[in-house]
Every structure is written in structure tokens, then in C-alpha cells.
Design a protein around this nucleic acid. Sequence first.
DNA 1: TTGTACGCGTTATCAT
DNA 2: ATGATAACGCGTACAA
Lengths: 333, 333
Amino acid sequence: MATISDIAKQANVSRTLVSRVLNNKPGVSPENRKKILEIIEKNHYVPNGLAKSLVLQKTNTIGVVMDDLCNDFFFQLIRGLQDGAEAQDYNILFCSGRRDMAAKLKYVDYLTSGCTDGIIAYGSCFDDEELFRHVAAKSANSVLIESNLSDCNADKILLDNFRGAYAATEHLIKQRRKNIIHVTCDMNYDVGLERLNGFVQAMHDYRMPLKPDSILYADHFETIAYQQMKKRLTQGTRPDACFAGADKPAFGVLRAVTEAGLSVPKDLALIGFDDDVPDSKDMLFPALSTMRQPLYEMGRAGVELLIDRINRPEREPVTRIFEAELILRETCL
Amino acid sequence: MATISDIAKQANVSRTLVSRVLNNKPGVSPENRKKILEIIEKNHYVPNGLAKSLVLQKTNTIGVVMDDLCNDFFFQLIRGLQDGAEAQDYNILFCSGRRDMAAKLKYVDYLTSGCTDGIIAYGSCFDDEELFRHVAAKSANSVLIESNLSDCNADKILLDNFRGAYAATEHLIKQRRKNIIHVTCDMNYDVGLERLNGFVQAMHDYRMPLKPDSILYADHFETIAYQQMKKRLTQGTRPDACFAGADKPAFGVLRAVTEAGLSVPKDLALIGFDDDVPDSKDMLFPALSTMRQPLYEMGRAGVELLIDRINRPEREPVTRIFEAELILRETCL
DNA sequence: TTGTACGCGTTATCAT
DNA sequence: ATGATAACGCGTACAA
């Protein structure tokens, strides 16, 4: 690959002039500018970004680290991140640890060792704590999405999962449902705990009965929720309402309920969480009522916070908390 | 951020010794090594990757540019790429132009200007030609997936769309279907044309009638195929078999056919292309028969070719052609 | 074992 | 308008 020196040599000028032409700066005679531009063109010359970033101490690039790129749950988040970066003319790079912690750590190290001006990390898995402390300790610019880590020097984007869960549960209660259960999402994540807590608090505040079989433990996918719900329907009193900690388990519940010959929402009202519904699901089941998580907006806000921090590294860290919104469709009116 | 000089100063040694410790090289006394390691630890020091790559002329990183990260079609490809990179201890970065050509070009420029050892570009859109010529002209290491661009200095990973389409059509013919139609995928892409050609050739070879209404033009999504098929069912002779240029339009067809009260595969046999089926679809419709495109393997192969080229830049460009595999499920036996 | 000096490719400063 | 020089942070001959 040609370098700036090659171009300078061919044009019989100094590297300084070439650099000025490259960056559209004044101080170059029209003839020289023309000649230099031609030679640049002829050689398909592009300045080396590494060298440039090294001397400028600026990359105009931000990095994103996530658990897994291959999950449609992240689509809206990704769009928000991309649009946010695009709006301020930053490059944005995506990495994923393929659900592997060591790989994720590796990418954090990589992205914070010079090639970006800052990183955004998504994840509320308890295991992520080590990761984020590592980032913060290096005092790299960073924003954490969905991770409520105290005293670490990073901006944070959070969703009020507790209030969201509370609101969903409250709605079911006000619908005069009598036997409300909660199917959790993955309890290895903060969100799992927070949503469970919101459910419990609402039940408590409204003096609703909370029995051991009021809570079914599942994860972020459909299958376990389906199995748990299927089992639950064969024992104890039949629930007439369910708040699920995420949409995917909600669909597991929906499937179990439907297969048991029950009618939704008549026999059982159902509210999910996330608004993470592939179009095709709407054709399969009644449309899912859910607490919408504004992932697009959270992504955009994350990028904006990060770039602001890049420009003002001394600013105190802030936390922006988003609210989930109750979307009533067909599974709960 | 601390630099290697800072560490050296604190340890009262030269930068050389610190560098040796960082890279696990001999030539450092045990005492010095210990002292240096402690200071590195204390400062959370990590070497600057830019400077390192600049002097080493090596980044151990590859970049991927795609149309759109937010499409489940790419999941298997991404997994293949990641696993391939992981296997050889390379970092892999994903960028997407959000379906915007200018953005895609920008990312290609960015990734080929120093921060990676090579790039992989996916796409067979005709518009991509400019892009790939641009890459090749810079003589950056690159591999093109699904893009059959002649005389450009890059390795290529291709799928034999013609043969795949031919095989699908042939299967329908041998099923003794009499009125076979083809619903295309997006004709702005090579794959659209190649699959159409395969269909036409098979029909021709077997002396099957090919009328103007034997071909419905759609795109890579469901809706248009659905509309076209719906219209088609109200006019002309009813088709008894359909080969669709991709799975998503196949599902559009399936929906139209089902809504028209026809039975699949009895009244109409259907074969898609890609094997790009979200789980939930299987619950909604009869499972789709399709030509499986081995995207995972294509991704892995792409990375392997790229890294091989990085190690042997003088090697002649090669092209690896993968074959699609007929997967018979419920929509065609 | 240790350190000096140079180069990677670029931009910025300060002469001329 | 032009160019020599230093600097960014690192690795590595080479010399000591």
C-alpha cells in the first residue's frame, strides 16, 4: 500500500503538502494541489487510519460489545446504535462474544486499546460485573446498557424493570384477575430479579395471594416456560392471568395454554415484556400484550452519552432510566 | 492512559525491557520482570493497539461488511464467520451499511485503511460492484461472499444458485406436477437472476410449458410474494407447484395458498430456497421444503480463505462454490 | 542483561 | 507557499 511519502515523492513535494491536500487545508498552490490529487487518484491512495488516529489521539469510532449478535431481540438496539453513530458521523463496530465470557473480555480489551474512542457494552448478566469493572478501571470512555453496576466510572442506560413489572401486574389485578402468576425470565440476569420484584411488590400492595406456585422459573427462551406452564396447568388451582418476564417465555406460556384448550384472554390474560415479537408470531397466536422496552431509543441515547463523554471526559457519570410502556393487544385487554 | 514510557519510568528501566515483558520475551532479569509486571498491573496498563499494529504491520483483526446486521437470514453466516475467526485467534468486527450504499462504502474504506488485515464483504446486489472494485483496486486482502465479480483480485465464496434452482425445479417436475411456477426473489441481485435461470433451464430441458404467468416477480420478503400469488390464484390456470427464489417469499406464497383454501402439498407443492426458517414458522405452517444454503460453512470458508491470503498475499485468487441441498419437509415430498 | 536509536505513517509546529 | 522536524506509542536491530 502506498504511503504519504510515496505520493510526496512522486509529486516532488514534501509530505506536508500532501497532508494539506488530504485534509482540505489551505497553503497549497493550485498547481501543486492538482498534481497531488491526480497522483493520489492514480495510486488509489488512502491515508493509513492507524497512523492518523495515533497522532490525532482520535478514531471517530465507537465499539459495541454484546453477548450475541444472532438474536432478533437486539435488532432495535442495533438500529438505535447505528442511527445514533451515523448522526454524529462516527463509525460503529459490533463484536459479540458468542455467549462466551472470555471472548467478550477479549473484545473489550481489544476495543479499548486504541482503535475506538469509547465502547458500549450491553448486558445485565451477573457475570458481566468483572467485565465492566475491568473497563472502568482502564478509565476508557464507556456506557453500560442494562447493567446497574454501582460506583464504576461509566454512563448507564437502564430500564426501570421494577416499575414495568409492577405496572403489568397492576393492570392484571385491576382487570379483576384473581389467580395471577409470574413466569420469570432468566434469573441469572438483573432484569430477571427486578421484574420478579416488581411482580411481588404489586401483588403485596394489592393484598393479592402469593403462593409458592405463583412463580414459575424460566429463561429468555420459549421452551422452559412452555414446559413449566404445561406442568403448572395440571396441578393446583388454574391461574387466570400471567405476567411473563419476557416475550419469548410469554409465547411458551401461550402455547401451553392454547394446547390445554384454554382461551386467551378469556380464561387467562397474558402480558409479556420487551415487545420483541417477530411478525410471524402475530399470525400464529393472538397478538401479545406486553411491556414495550424502548430499545431503539436506549441505543440512540447510549451513543449520544458516549460521544458526549468523549468530548467531555471530565463530566460526571450519569444514568438515564427509561420506562417500559404497556401495550395492550389481544392477550390482555 | 499510561504508555509504555510511563511504565518504564516508574520501573527505572528502558522501554525495551517493558516491551520484552509484555511480549513474554527473554532477556529480562527475574527481579526486573517482577517489578515491571507489578507496575503494569497497578496501572491497568494495556499496550496501545494502534501503535503496535502500526509497527508490526499486523492487526490480527478482520472486518465484515454486510447490508444489514438486523436480518435473521445472516445468523448462520455470522456464526460461521465468528467461529472461523476464533479458530485462528483473530478478532472479527462487524459493520453494516443499514441498507445504505454510501454507508457501506464508508465502512469498506474504514476497514481497509489500516485497522484490519483484510475484509469480507457479503452481497450480490448489482450496486455492490462499485464497492468491490474499490476494494480490489486498493489491493487489500478481501473475500467476497455471494458476489460473482469477474477479474477482481479477491477470493470468492459462491453458491451454485443455478444448479440449486435447477434441482428444485427438477424435483417438482419428477413429482409429475404439470403447472409449475416460479416466484422470484429480488431481481436486483445476482441470486435472483441465477435462480430464475435455473428454473427456466430445467423447465426447458424437460419440455415443460413456460408461459408468461409462470413467473411471478417478488423480492426477499414475504409481502410482495403473498400479493402476487394471491392475484395469480384468481386468474389463469391454477398452478400445482411452485419454486420460490427464497424462503421468505415462499412463506408469502404459502400464506396466499392457505388462505385460498388450497391444501399443501396436495394441491400445490412448494419448495423455497435458503433454509432460513425461524422456528415459529414451523408452528404456523407446514414445514417448508427448501434448498438449504450452507451459510455457516460459507462463512467459515470465507474466513479461512481470507487468513490464508493474509499469510500468502501472492497466492492467486480462488473461488469456492458451494452446492445447495434439497431438504424435503412437508410442503413438498 | 540492558539500553540506544530507528522506523511504522500520519499530523502539527515552526521555520523559511 | 513550502518543507524540515517532532510527536503519537510501540517493537526491534544493534551496541554496550
